[in-house]
Simulated assay, not measured.
Amino acid sequence: MDVGLTVGDSIARMAATVEGFDLAEFSIGEGTDVDEIDRNRLDEVLSEADADLCVHLPFKQVAVTPVTEINDAIRAYLTRLLEWAGAQGATKAVLHGTARNPHDTDLRPAFADQLSAIGGIAADAGVELVVENVGHQKRGLPLTVLGDLARETETAVCFDVGHAYMEDGHDGIDRFLSGYGDLVSHLHVHDARSRGDTHLPLGAGEIDYGIVAEELGGFDGTVAVEVFTDDVALLEDTRRRIESHLAP
């Protein structure tokens, strides 16, 4: 198991926090011209930390709409970003599981087609696509729907524990991992409170990570600590906690 950090779109934040972690998950902002990202500095920071690179694809735009021409444009846009990620040596790319209307059952076949196509684009670029659960958000597919579509399309999952808790509490975490845990290749870990606080250090919220340990003990994928702080001591504490939960 490799444990890293989400660092947003800031190479400076990566440089300040990633030392001692196995990977950095770098976000590509919506509308970002990837050719303007300082590749040399990015490579330098990763090399100095001996860390791998993952990327998070833009999250404001949905993955699928009812309009074929828009879906074509989304794939073309993501092709450019995934080719950049592959050239940069990224191992995984996170895509939010979103749709214009996530509760429109008629749109689900189109989502499956879109997910398969984007996964193929990623594979051609040498990157593993992982689809993330964001069912607590307005455009996010519900947990079970996302799991069913990921299985149908043979797409790996980025399971965000905090997002699942915000959507459906501990029951949601348990049901998803018991039904789809074999699809999980990448984890986002943070703590949360039902009142709306999220992306907290582990131990600062309400999530029982023992549930995750029961289903994913001995996990051999990648983990990104997604705690919204630059306090390295807090980030490292969350790393130690998740390692203690998931260690073989």
Rank of each mutant, 00 (worst) to 15 (best):
A224H: 03
I211V: 15
R100M: 15
D197Q: 10
L42Y: 06
V94F: 01
F176W: 07
F176A: 05
L82H: 01
A90T: 12
D208C: 11
D197T: 09
E215F: 15
V34W: 13
Y180L: 03
T17Q: 13
Y77T: 11
R13Y: 07
C158H: 07
V62G: 03
P66C: 10
A110N: 10
I70P: 03
D104A: 02
L95K: 03
Y77H: 13
D231M: 06
E236A: 10
A150M: 02
D104M: 04
E36Y: 00
A150L: 04
P102A: 09
L235R: 00
A49I: 11
G217P: 12
P201L: 12
L200I: 06
I118P: 00
T229W: 11
V130K: 03
R139Q: 11
S178E: 09
E25H: 10
V212M: 03
F21K: 01
Q61D: 14
L5R: 01
T105F: 04
D22N: 06
E30F: 13
D220T: 13
G86N: 11
G140K: 01
C54L: 14
S194Q: 13
A85G: 10
T6Y: 01
T91D: 02
D106E: 14
G196Q: 00
D148E: 14
R80L: 14
G31D: 04
R241D: 15
L57W: 07
H199K: 11
F219N: 11
D197L: 11
T68E: 12
G203Y: 10
S178Y: 07
E19W: 07
A24S: 13
Y77C: 01
V67D: 14
F219I: 07
P58I: 01
T238G: 00
S244W: 08
L187G: 08
A99T: 00
S194E: 08
D9W: 04
V189K: 03
E226Y: 08
T222A: 15
